[in-house]
């Protein structure tokens, strides 16, 4: 079985309930506050401490003023790729595919090498800073704290310095609960479920929207590219770039054969020249 998300951006109202719910459930710290000036998006991007991020794509038409203005909102998240660049790159085996077919970073295994960070074609996973003081000193619920320590699933547990991203609420799924972000979403823009069923539902929705004349399509379903299908996929109505998604994501490991061959040829050529240079030395 594989679980995942179908995020229908056409019904997102930009309330950021998912962002907040994720922060709260996973006990992720605040990222500080800064006015970006970019519409209502003061979060900016996904990060090691922000695992859901709501983008606000403000599109103002020049003339006549306001005639075709639109505002696209989209709740972004780790794609839980079928062929995950982060997981292939990880040299410690910290990143695994769990029993729900989600891509999960084991915080107690990761040693913070940072290779997954540059190997994600979507710019999702990131390292979190070291936190040395004990977390939530003022948090009194000893039982809950103990439970969390036991499950060891909070990325910030311990002292940071490791990679972190959406766990697809592994801890909640294990006990049959819906991920916090999907649960909190008041419009059902974020739909959680079994991936096959989500895909069916999504293609029906695309058809319905297309009938109404919207250029709706699914991003990350029926993908021909090396990354494969995304287990968190999206219904979009503009180009992927408008939402800061890559139009053509490529699985980084596919470039390795070319690199090794090129390096081996160069090394062999130089060594042969070296043999000629050192001939007669022996």
């Amino acid at each position: 079985m594989a679980t995942g998300f179908f995020t229908d951006t056409t019904i997102c109202i930009g309330c950021k309930a998912c962002e907040v719910a994720c922060k709260q459930w996973n006990e992720l710290p605040s990222d500080g506050f800064e006015f970006s000036g970019d519409s209502y998006d003061n979060t900016g991007s996904l990060s090691g401490t922000t695992w859901r991020h709501v983008s606000f794509v403000e599109q103002l038409s020049p003339e006549p003023a306001g005639a075709e203005d639109r505002w696209l909102m989209m709740s972004d998240v780790c794609k839980h790729c079928t062929h995950a660049g982060c997981m292939e790159a990880c040299p410690t085996g910290a990143i695994i595919r769990n029993e729900f077919n989600n891509v999960f970073v084991q915080p107690d295994i990761c040693n913070g090498c940072g290779y997954c960070v540059v190997s994600c074609p979507f710019g999702v996973v990131d390292l979190i800073a070291k936190v040395n003081e004990p977390r939530h000193a003022d948090y009194n619920d000893a039982t809950l704290n103990q439970e969390r320590e036991h499950t060891s699933q909070t990325a910030l547990q311990g002292s940071g310095g490791v990679a972190a991203k959406c766990t697809l609420c592994y801890d909640r799924q294990k006990i049959g609960m819906v991920p916090a972000c999907a649960k909190a979403c008041p419009t059902e823009s974020i739909q959680f479920g079994e991936i096959e069923e989500l895909r069916e539902r999504a293609s029906k929705r695309v058809e319905a929207l297309q009938e109404r004349g919207l250029p709706a399509y699914l991003y990350g379903a029926g993908n021909e590219g090396s990354v494969g299908d995304l287990n968190a996929f999206f219904l979009l109505i503009d180009k992927p770039e408008a939402y800061n998604l890559p139009a053509e994501p490529v699985l980084p490991s596919t470039r390795q054969p070319a690199g090794y061959v090129s390096a081996a040829l160069t090394a062999a050529l130089l060594t042969l020249l070296g043999l000629a240079v050192f001939k007669g030395a022996k």
């Binding site: 990880c90 085996g93 990761c110 310095g161």
Partner: peptide, 18 residues
Amino acid sequence: LGRPERFHHMMRVVKVKS
């Protein structure tokens, strides 16, 4: 490394694709 004391975790696995 973010956690240098865990450098030996690299020796848990051999991954041809990494």
